[in-house]
């Protein structure tokens, strides 16, 4: 475990906590894409299949449980909670996320570290996570007044990916034969998707104006 990876995991944790707090306290999910949340729940479900099979560390197990619980809780809130579900921006959250699940599954079948069920699911989850933010970014372009908590949620998600890239660079230079093309390429693609969000987010923060993403 290195500082970059720990900081990355903590930033990822903060992003889901920010989102959960927003939804739980103000009972609103305005501006939040249910499709992205469903994709994330699927990412964790597919990736953490070895939760009870391989014990890596207490930290690893606890964090997996936290990410699984939080992602499914957020989906539950947005789908089932009688107040929150009414604030869901259904008509603007129209990204056809089914169209990205299938290609990621096919890619997982073709490009994986070992052709076993768990490894295919793991690769699928890596590819899916890379594009899971798309529905959320599309929704932000269509949302007029983006509220701070939603913007912070996306910002922390992007920050966690940037930190993971530093983690991989560090591990590449400190651990012999630490090579993971699947995570690296998918992770770089994922981070690039946040590029223009970061640009407009930092610009709005510097000029102290409301965040607006150009459509």
């Amino acid at each position: 475990m290195n500082l970059f990876r720990l900081a990355g995991d903590m930033t990822h944790l903060v992003s889901v906590v920010v989102l959960l707090l927003k939804i739980h306290t103000i009972k609103s999910c305005a501006g939040v894409s249910l499709k992205t949340q469903e994709l994330y729940a699927l990412v964790f479900a597919a990736r953490y299949l070895d939760l009870f099979v391989h014990f890596v560390s207490l930290y690893n197990t606890v964090m997996k449980l936290v990410f699984l619980a939080s992602s499914f809780t957020i989906v539950w809130y947005m789908r089932r909670h009688k107040i929150v579900r009414r604030t869901y921006d259904k008509e603007h959250d129209t990204f056809r996320h089914h169209f990205i699940v299938l290609p990621c599954l096919v890619l997982g079948l073709l490009l994986n570290e070992k052709f076993t069920f768990r490894e295919v699911m793991w690769a699928f989850s890596i590819y899916l996570e890379a594009v899971a933010i798309l529905p959320q970014l599309v929704l932000l372009q269509r949302t007029r007044n983006i509220d701070n908590l939603t913007a912070q949620y996306v910002f922390f998600l992007g920050a966690y990916r940037v930190l993971y890239i530093f983690n991989w660079i560090y591990r590449y230079f400190t651990e012999p034969h630490f090579v993971h093309w699947i995570s690296w390429i998918a992770g770089i693609v994922q981070t690039l998707l946040y590029g223009d969000f970061f640009y407009y987010y930092i610009l709005s923060w510097k000029n102290n104006v409301k965040l607006e993403l150009p459509a």
């Binding site: 099979v53 890596v56 560390s57 990410f67 570290e113």
Partner: peptide
């Protein structure tokens, strides 16, 4: 991490 070992990253 050799092949087949559990992925140690989240």
């Amino acid at each position: 991490r050799q092949r087949g070992e559990p992925h140690d990253e989240l």
